[in-house]
Amino acid sequence: MMLSSRGFILVTTLILILILSSISLPMLVQASLSQKLSASATLSAQLKLRTQSKHAQQLELLQQGTIESADFVLAPCPAFYAAWSDLSFQCEWHQLRTSEASFQHQHSVTSFLVRKSLLEGGRNGSL
C-alpha cells in the first residue's frame, strides 16, 4: 500500500515535470528564434536601404551625366502628352542596376529610364 502510493507520487511528479518543461522549452526556443529573426530582418532592411540609397544616388549621377548606365538601346519614344513629330526627338532606353551583398544575401534594384533629347533642326533639315 505504502509502496504503491509512493510510486503514484513519483509518476505524478514526473508527469508534472514533463508538462512544465514542455511548456517552458518551446518558449525559450521561440525567444531565441525571434531574436535571430529580428537580427536578420534588421540586416536585410539595412541592406535594402543601403542598396536603395545607392541606387537613388546613381540615378542622380546618371541624369547629371557623370556615370554611364550598364547598357542602353535606341528605341521608339514612349507616348508623350506634349507629343513631337518623329524626326525631331530621340529616345534612349537606359537600364541601371545596383546590387549590394552581405554574407550570403544579395539585394539588387534595377530601373529602366528613357532619356529624351531634342535634335535641333531635325534629322531631315526640317522637323
Binding site: K48, L62, P78, V109, F112
Partner: peptide, 18 residues
C-alpha cells in the same frame, strides 16, 4: 530642360539566406 529623363519602372530582387 533637355535632355529629359523619365523613369519607366523599377524592380527589386533579393537572393540568399541568413
Amino acid at each position: 530642360s533637355f535632355p529629359r529623363w523619365q523613369l519607366m519602372g523599377t524592380y527589386q530582387n533579393e537572393e540568399g539566406v541568413y
